[in-house]
């Protein structure tokens, strides 16, 4: 079946290291997206027309452009148009952060707008000042709504990092291909075993996270 290839030498370790590359890119992008997304989301929930227009265009671009196209634009386009040379990994991080920030900002905005105005009014009636209202009333509610959704964003980010092999980053799929190529003569069926393993590795990376997200969502249901 081709699984035996993985037991030869350090092939399996190489696959895991490849997965590590994908995970590293996604963790960095997730951190940037969450921070930038919270900031942008708060900005977007204000009613300034300029910000509204800008955020609408930004969100629509992210919504309809495949991440792969964005990757190509940054990786191939930037060199050509701006004359700067961006490494494949950096362009992947730029694209995923650009995409993730939009998603996160939209989540933050949605969460902020989902808090009914009565919450603000009641806390005012109770004599809380604005900082107290935010710290004790609004933020705890928003965090409960946001955490499951942003955890979900992390799994999507991990899944999307599989695209980076298309711009030449050596990650788990590429390592898999290399192993298959190197063992073409000895085990011709390696493709099945290796890709099945990659499939499972991705599943094992994402499944616990999405389970956690589901569990928290249920626990904090309002």
């Amino acid at each position: 079946m081709g699984f035996e290839v993985l037991l030869k030498g350090n092939n399996f370790l190489r696959l895991l290291l490849g997965l590590g590359v994908s995970l590293r890119i996604s963790v960095i992008s997730v951190l940037i997206s969450i921070l930038a997304g919270i900031f942008l989301g708060i900005l977007m929930s204000t009613d300034k027309p300029v910000i509204k227009l800008f955020s609408k265009i930004y969100l629509e671009v992210v919504r309809i452009m495949p991440q792969m196209v964005l990757l190509f634009i940054v990786f191939f386009g930037a060199t050509r148009i701006l004359g700067i040379n961006i490494s494949a990994e950096l362009s992947a991080i730029i694209v995923f952060s650009f995409w993730g920030t939009a998603e996160m900002a939209d989540l933050v905005r949605g969460a902020l707008q989902s808090i009914p105005i009565t919450q603000y009014e009641s806390s005012k009636a109770l004599g809380l000042n604005q900082t107290q209202t935010f710290v004790y009333i609004i933020i705890p509610q928003i965090v409960r709504r946001l955490i499951p959704l942003s955890i979900n964003l992390i799994t999507r980010m991990i899944k999307t990092t599989s695209l980076v092999m298309m711009i030449g980053i050596v990650e788990v799929l590429k390592v898999g291909q290399q192993i298959i190529e190197a063992n073409r003569k000895v085990s011709p069926n390696a493709a099945f075993g290796v890709f099945a393993t990659v499939f499972l590795l991705y599943f094992l990376a994402c499944w616990p996270i999405s389970l956690l997200s589901k569990k928290l969502e249920k626990k904090w249901e309002i």
Binding site: K159, N189, F199
Partner: peptide, 19 residues
């Protein structure tokens, strides 16, 4: 839901012919 399409396609397109 927890695996990327690219990996699924690789498995179906390159992996399955081997069996």
């Amino acid at each position: 839901r927890n695996t990327p399409l690219l990996v699924q396609l690789f498995f179906i397109y390159f992996g399955l012919p081997r069996i």
